[in-house]
Design a protein around this nucleic acid. Sequence first.
RNA 1: GCCGAUGUAGUUCAGUGGUAGAACACGUUCUUGGUAAGAACGAGGCCGAGAGUUCAAUUCUCUCCAUCGGCUCCA
Length: 582
Amino acid sequence: MKIETIRHSLAHILAYAVKELYPEVKLGMGPDIENGFYYDFEFSKKKSLKPEDLSRVEEKMKELIKRDIKFVKKTISKNEAKKLFKDQPYKLELIKELTDKNVSIYISDGFIDLCKGPHIKNTKEISPDGFKLTKLAGAYWKGDEENTMLTRIYGTAFNSKKELDDYLLAQIEAEKRDHRMLGQKMELFLINEEIGLGLPLWLPKGAVVRKAIEDYLYKELTKEDYQWLYTPHIGSRKLWETSGHWNFYNENMYPPLEIGQNLEESQKGKVSEIKEEYLLKPMNCPFHAYVYNSKIRSYKDLPIKFAELGTVYRYEKSGTLHGLTRVRGFTQDDAHLICTPKQMPEEIEKLVRHALSMLKDFGFEEYNIYLSTRPKKYAGTLKKWEKATDTLKYVLRKLKLKYETDAGGGVFYGPKIDIKIKDSLSREWQCTTIQFDFNLPEKFKMSYVNERGKKEEPYMIHRALLGSMERFFGVLIESYAGALPFWLSPVQIEVIPVGADHIKYAESIHEEFIKSGIRSELNDKKETVSKKIREAEIQKIPYMIVVGDKEIKEGSIRIREREKGDMGITELHDFIKRIKME
RNA sequence: GCCGAUGUAGUUCAGUGGUAGAACACGUUCUUGGUAAGAACGAGGCCGAGAGUUCAAUUCUCUCCAUCGGCUCCA
């Protein structure tokens, strides 16, 4: 039997058990998911479910499983179904939405559920100790914020107790990769309430990694003919009205700053006469459009590529903030490509290729690709949206990339291709985004002169290949469990003298590394070698160089590799040559 | 923003209706050593904030704030 089917059947058993213990409960939906299943319930206001009740429900489920309950499928008319589920408002809603004349139900002993299946034949097929109820959470009915919030019970299930235990153990291991915990231990970044929510500070060691990533980006993009820009963090209200953000992106923006007076005057309650409003930028595009418009452009200049490590601010709901991966102030590796309509498919293709090759350079080979289509709030005509979406589809097909469609997930100005990377607990984070835009060129009256000397409107592509420095760093830490590759390690080498007599020699070695552009650190504290090694291992430093009497006599160094241990004695300059290749 | 849980030293956590402890980190001293924690001593806390109950609240109740797990939304 397929494990998915068992999981789905367990969802029914869960609902059965809950119904037995809480007869008043209203049932939502209960599908199988990756590694398990869930079921949504509405409990009466007086008698809600507490986390400690989960074990009771679990016991009840085990009891039911042992009863060898059969799953019997039956097809009945919609009217019959309506009668059958008359006390279940959520089920009635589902029945109403079904277009077929008949609906299928599954009868398991005293429990009946609306379900198209498939299911197991008998609970004998379930391993009673192969599943576990894991957590309780709130979830909107049908995933819509406007609907009531139901109580969701999550469970995880496998074919055997061994598989379940392995999974639970792997989860505990995965939690140790959490970038929030490692970021603290490795002194990479700091998030502090008083500084502000979702506004991380990059500590010296984190800043070094960021610089290494930025240097990489600078090289990569300059090679591809990008031109670098710097633009301000705030822009006048007028600018954002022109761009359309004022109307279409207001949910994600902070309210305006009133300029025309200073803080002191404002604190004294003085009403400013000059009413000037400025907004923190949520995107860099309007500025880039202005750079484009700063002179007349010819078709011969296109495509033009403007890149910026642009720091933007977005209002994110408090409940969504998450370490470095979801913050309110962040720096995108942003760029805007302006091209002729004809150049568009080729430029998008190049971008997707470039994104994938860059992700590979950072060790990411697993990701999911999404095509996000027109959202509820959008600018432009349906026809243009359709054409743009088709272009993106064409590129994905041409590159033979598997993708999913995220219906309604596009930005207000156009559809997009996103690449999402999973964190240690397999939550997906959108990093790469390549966005088609046929709206801003019109709003900012962008143009180029074509072959016939006539003005024409260009197309624009917004894209961030790593996404944001913050989020990318977060998933990067998790993917390596903190043990970053040599070129990204904040400290690449720890030089450890065995005793006080060896400090001078250690210092000279350390200086040689620094001279060669290697991030070396000297640990000359009065501690044992073991202790220093331990500290360096916790800091995930790739190489430790231990020097004592023997090494001084030979003029050599002894190398220890992170997680591997002692690698033996070698000559300093050979070693430098070797690691510079990494 | 919504549902649930949590909030004690720089960090990870114990603990109690009579205002607090451990380990690590930090400081001083001793020790001088060879591949994941040498020893002693010391400094450190408005027990998240506000209100209520009580003779007395870090502990009980409520509200707020933040964090964590989900949902929704997003780079």
